[in-house]
Simulated scan of single mutants.
Amino acid sequence: MTALATGRFADVPLVLLDLDGTIVDSGPGILEALSHAFARCGEPLPPPAVLRTFIGPPLEDSFCGTLGLGRERAEQLRIAYSAYYQQHGLLSAVPYPGMPELIGALVAEGRTVAVATNKPETSARTLLAHQGLAEAFALIGGTDRAAGREGKAAVIGSVLERLGATADRRTPSGIDVVPAVMIGDRLHDAEGAAEHALPTVLVDWGYGGVVERAVDLPRAHSVEALGAMLRG
């Protein structure tokens, strides 16, 4: 029986963690920066329920897909958002209770723990260093527009490659092995992992909504429950 079927991942060597809505509660800072960006660009501010869905996925996808804006207008909003967020919102994110302890326990057990986030990689490193968590991770992976690394699938692929986790997934006896599991709060986390044939656990303390609740994937209702799934 596979780890995905049992919802138990204690034997999976590499744990990939999303950042926003999984490790840290970054919502207030992101929502404030979004409000600033819409005002700065003269765009009507979407309702709070819509803005909440923007936390996690690439902002351009939300601006274009959810709001129907053109790419040029979406880029203007992104630039206004990023300028404000880097100065005022980035370091306001705080870890969810229990997550630093769970990460530390996994590392102490010899597991490899890495970050795979849609946040720019430099921003993710700055935030986690500010919270004193950066040293716990084997790699902090994020987007890099200059390198053409955008979207969760590209980030996960980059993390796997840099950690050398893209080798043959079969044992000498021909048994399939699961090299990594993705932990996130939004559907795009699962979709990105699926492109690399990796399982996903969705957490309930982040920013998932109706779409996430409708999918048939392993779920962790609390940090303690996630720990039980990852540690056995």
Score class of each variant (00 low, 15 high):
G56D: 07
M182L: 08
P13N: 07
V50T: 15
V178E: 15
T66F: 02
R149Q: 09
T117I: 02
L17V: 05
R111W: 05
Q86V: 01
E109H: 12
L90Y: 03
V155C: 10
E161D: 13
L90P: 04
A39M: 12
V181T: 04
D176V: 07
S222T: 15
A129D: 11
V178C: 15
Y96V: 00
D204K: 08
T200V: 05
R186A: 04
L217R: 14
S26Q: 11
L4T: 06
T143R: 07
V210A: 15
R213G: 09
K152Y: 12
M1H: 11
L230K: 12
P58H: 14
T143F: 04
A33Y: 03
S26T: 11
D144C: 13
G65I: 07
V50Y: 01
A83R: 12
R73H: 09
P28G: 10
M182V: 13
G98P: 06
A167T: 13
K119S: 08
T6Y: 00
R213M: 10
H130S: 13
G192V: 12
G68S: 08
R40P: 00
P179Q: 06
A39G: 03
G21E: 04
V107D: 03
V50W: 01
D176L: 15
G142R: 01
V210R: 15
M182F: 11
A197E: 15
V203H: 12
A5N: 04
R169M: 00
G132A: 12
V50S: 06
A154Q: 13
M182G: 09
G68E: 07
T53S: 15
R149L: 13
E191Y: 06
P100E: 02
G68M: 09
A10N: 07
D204G: 12
A167K: 01
F38N: 09
A49F: 08
G7V: 03
H188T: 10
N118V: 03
R145E: 15
S123E: 11
L91W: 02
R145C: 04
A108T: 10
A129F: 00
L31E: 14
A83C: 03
A74S: 14
P44A: 02
D61F: 03
E212L: 12
A154F: 02
G68V: 10
R186W: 06
T143W: 01
A83P: 00
A146T: 08
R71H: 14
P13A: 07
A49P: 00
A80Q: 04
P97H: 06
A39N: 11
E135Q: 13
V178K: 00
G174P: 04
G21S: 05
L198I: 08
N118I: 05
A154Y: 02
V24H: 01
A39E: 15
G192A: 14
V155K: 07
T2F: 03
A134Y: 01
